[in-house]
Design a protein around this nucleic acid. Structure first.
Lengths: 246, 246
DNA sequence: GTCTATACAACGATAGAC
DNA sequence: GTCTATCGTTGTATAGAC
């Protein structure tokens, strides 16, 4: 999906990745075509986008359970009966949202793990990629974090597994850097959770960063700097002679 | 409420603070006596505890909106009619829970701000105090974080204000340490949010720390170490000659 | 102080007209 | 492909017996 590593601006990330516009919603449509009863793809994709964005607007302010399908109906200007041509049921709608986001994140994690990057590059790509994805898909992240409890047990487990796999990637990367003599780190597992925590803050506490005028790139930079500082990484001796070991 | 600074074990924190047992629930009862129609304090306190803990069990697994009062009735073994002798309404119950927790946290923040501690001591008390409170009042924290959206606008604002006041305390403390030459810090505001983020992880991601066998004290220690490391604090030259400036 | 019985509004979901 | 009309269920809340 993306070209790793990419340059570190949000704009170039937007260009290199398909998470917006018609192509993105088309891929969402493809992902749960089975539940949609409408044949005409153009119509279906358009209404699907309306339904999802309206769901985010409502659920991310009052909560998904508190949002009634009548609310959703008036927000989308699609009738109650009409909605059911696009969703199997209310709880199915929530399930699909989580499933789509998880699929996209999973894809990124797998690419990061398979790409053969230097430890610093891998951390860089993980951190900037995560912040930028959370920026672009902000409503999706907010929804999934807050509404996970309401989803089936199995789905909750899969979400936790993905988070653990992301952290496992971070831990392995840190370990590699330690072995290559670029990093020092006493508690790789705790540092990994700390990174996850800081990344999730970007969507969880958006109000705070807006209030303080912290831009997306400012934040990603700060996280990256903090991590490298914790790892006692020295940019001068970046271990490029040990490239062969990567 | 607490004696700051206290020694850094969870057990001593438990002893020095009233957040459990009959005295704690009595104070909860006192806090919203007006909504309770039962005269007998002993009976009221007992049932109030049952109602609150059952609410946490249900709401923290399936969500507060998804929890019906019929669920709550069978979980508490109090009839539907009986419940209404203790709560004004369902949404009132959520409001009260948030109000109680906020009052307790607010109390701690005010004490920390008024006590005249050295910067390192203040950070120490803030971090250990926060983790230990989140440990003891875990269900309260979980509930308030996840259900804040469903509460009145004004209450949401007050919760955000409290978080900002806590971070303002951290920022002021960091600044004091910088002025006294004990710390160096480029981004005090971002570090403060980072501290909040790490503290909130203790209740948000309890499953992860349990999985990895990280104890409460391990975690508080890690947060404290990370912060001091970021601030380039050197335990040897702890600025005790500048005590007069505190 | 606690219960049972019940009111009635709102919900998710569907059938059938257009 | 979209709508209106309506079904059965479940929700919160209360009244009145005990």
């Amino acid at each position: 999906m993306a070209d790793w590593p990419f340059d570190t601006s949000l704009e170039s990330f937007r260009r290199s990745v398909v998470l917006e516009g018609e192509p993105f919603w088309r891929s969402v449509f493809e992902m749960h075509k089975d539940k949609v009863q409408i044949k005409n793809a153009k119509v279906a994709i358009n209404n699907l986008e309306k339904i999802f964005t309206a769901t985010f607007r409502l659920a991310n302010t009052k909560g998904f359970q508190a949002m009634s399908l009548r609310d959703l109906s008036s927000e989308t200007e699609i009738s109650m009966g009409g909605l059911y041509a696009y969703i199997g049921s209310k709880e199915d709608l929530a399930s699909v949202i989580e499933g789509v986001l998880r699929k996209y994140i999973d894809q990124v994690v797998r690419e990061l793990a398979s790409d053969d990057l230097l430890p610093v590059e891998c951390l860089n790509a993980s951190i900037f990629g995560s912040v930028y994805m959370a920026e672009i898909l902000n409503p999706w992240y907010q929804f999934c974090f807050m509404e996970l409890k309401g989803l089936p047990r199995e789905q909750q487990q899969q979400a936790m597994d993905l988070e653990l796999r992301f952290e496992a990637l971070l831990i392995a990367t840190i370990h590699k850097g330690v072995v290559q003599g670029q990093f020092t780190c006493c508690h790789p597992e705790l540092l990994a959770s700390q990174i996850t925590a800081m990344l999730q803050q970007w969507h969880l506490k958006h109000w705070k960063f807006k209030l303080r005028n912290v831009s997306t790139q400012d934040y990603a930079n700060y996280v990256m700097e903090t991590v490298l500082d914790t790892l006692n990484f020295n940019a001068e001796s970046d271990g490029s002679v040990t490239n062969v070991q990567k």
